[in-house]
Amino acid sequence: MNGLDAAITQYIDPYYLRIMILLGINIILALGLNLITGVTGQLSMGHAGFMSIGAYTSAILSMQFGFSYLMALLAGAAVAAFFGFLIGIPTLRLEGDYLAMVTIGFAEIIRVFFLNFEPGGKAVGLSGIPQHTNFITVWLIALLIIALNTRLLKSRMGRAFYAIRENEIAAASTGIDTTRLKILAFTAGSFLGGLGGGLYSHYMYYINPQDFGFMKSIELLNMVILGGMGSIPGTILGSFILTLAPEMLRIVAEYRLLFYGALLVILMIFRPNGILGDVRIYDLKKRWGRKEVKTCQS
């Protein structure tokens, strides 16, 4: 596998390689948030907080405690999941935008915590993290996560998550323990947030609390909503567009963020449900597959 990676590094331009690696990480992060916000409908605006927990935990474990790469990643994700579980508990009582505010507050507290956290280098950040993450590891994990996510969302549990988003009272009256499932969505989503964070820190070599600020959370939320709430292809597309957009917009140099902001507004005006929000594979098949068959109207 190392040979394969060496080959990839040799033949692909480092600039594109970097974008592809970051895309893989963003997909993992966004799929985690998609589970919480897109699928279960619990607006979270603090996903970068979980990412930073995973990033710092795994980095410190592999630098100072000699954890192997995989173990460090899993431990980082597990710690993030634990905090996701804790944050999931207020969902017992809070609704809608109150919950959003708690997630913002939580992520800010985490950021301030790392700004004052001695082993993490405080505001200076943490450098010298081993660069274990490469194209192969990121995309192997990303594909695995996509596959597991797809399976989950097509299962009984996945349908229950969607049902909570659509109508909580009706969901409860079909026997869904809405409280437990909301906490579960938070826990699983944060696990992926922590995993993405670990991959990120082991790729970047250097991390700093400002990498995981409010704007990062918002960027991840944009990926989920832009692509289409709750849709896996939509989330992947959203990650793709928003990972590439800043790169493409490099030609406009300092006007980059200006265009980025305008792009968000324009996309929402023309595709209010997200780019793939109301597109289903089933409908596409029907539209293209049955062209010659004249079905009579029932």
Partner: peptide, 16 residues
């Protein structure tokens, strides 16, 4: 549209 798309639009304006 859902409230969330309006939210994203607001974030776009903020960045802009």
């Amino acid at each position: 549209s859902s409230r969330l798309s309006a939210l994203i639009s607001a974030i776009g304006v903020s960045i802009f």
